[in-house]
Each structure stands twice: as structure tokens, then as C-alpha cells.
């Protein structure tokens, strides 16, 4: 029987001196994963953007639980978006969006 895929939600804080839009953010995330793990590895992550607030520079993304470490490592390796220096920090990880918001509020 097909096993249900467990997912994890990550709250990300983008740190940069310039504005970053959601297309640039997602393309940076996919590029980082592809560079580090290749296209096969990237296909296992199931990375999806749930929401992004460009003013707060706060993003919520979803990934497969089995590829959580791959996603986190790839996020840590991002140092530039469109040739501008950035850093992306994982604020919290959770199994549900509700719990993620609860953790963020704490």
C-alpha cells in the first residue's frame, strides 16, 4: 500500500539589504538544492512555497519529511540572490502550519 507522505513546514527569515520577491526566493531555493543534490535529489524534496511576506522577509515553505535535512542544508548554502548577498535562516520547523505559527509567536 502506498504510504502517506509526511511533510514539514519551515519558517524562513531572509536577511538581505535589498528586496527579494517570491520568484527570486524560490528560484534561489531550487538552484541551491539542484547544485547540492542534483535534479534527482531536488525531485525528492517536494519543495513548495506556502506564503511569503516581502515586507517582513518571512517565508513559509513545505518539504517532504524525508528530505528535510537536504532542504535545510541547501537553504544554509544560499549566499546570493541575483548577485546580492543574502542569508536565509530557518526560524522554526513544524509538522502543521498551525503549530508553525504557534512556534513563531513564541
Amino acid at each position: 500500500m502506498l504510504k502517506r507522505t509526511k511533510r514539514r513546514y519551515l519558517a524562513l527569515q531572509v536577511e538581505s539589504t535589498v528586496a527579494v520577491d517570491q520568484t527570486q526566493l524560490m528560484s534561489a531555493l531550487w538552484n541551491a538544492i539542484t547544485k547540492l543534490y542534483g535534479e534527482h535529489g531536488a525531485s525528492q524534496t517536494g519543495l513548495t512555497l506556502i506564503k511569503y511576506d516581502p515586507d517582513e522577509k518571512l517565508a513559509v515553505v513545505r518539504t517532504n519529511n524525508t528530505a528535510l535535512n537536504m532542504t535545510r542544508a541547501s537553504i544554509a548554502t544560499i549566499i546570493k540572490i541575483e548577485e546580492k548577498p543574502v542569508a536565509i535562516h530557518v526560524l522554526t520547523v513544524s509538522g502543521t502550519i498551525k503549530a508553525l505559527h504557534k512556534n513563531l509567536r513564541q
Partner: peptide, 18 residues
């Protein structure tokens, strides 16, 4: 020496898993 190259300890640990 660059703030933008500093990572959280948990991220450092994940990088070590590489």
C-alpha cells in the same frame, strides 16, 4: 568575518551532515 555567512548552530550541524 561576514555576518551573512554566519549560520545558526542547527544549520551548521545540518551542513556537517553533508
Amino acid at each position: 568575518s561576514n555576518e551573512l555567512l554566519m549560520r545558526k548552530p542547527q544549520e551548521q550541524a545540518v551542513l556537517a551532515q553533508l
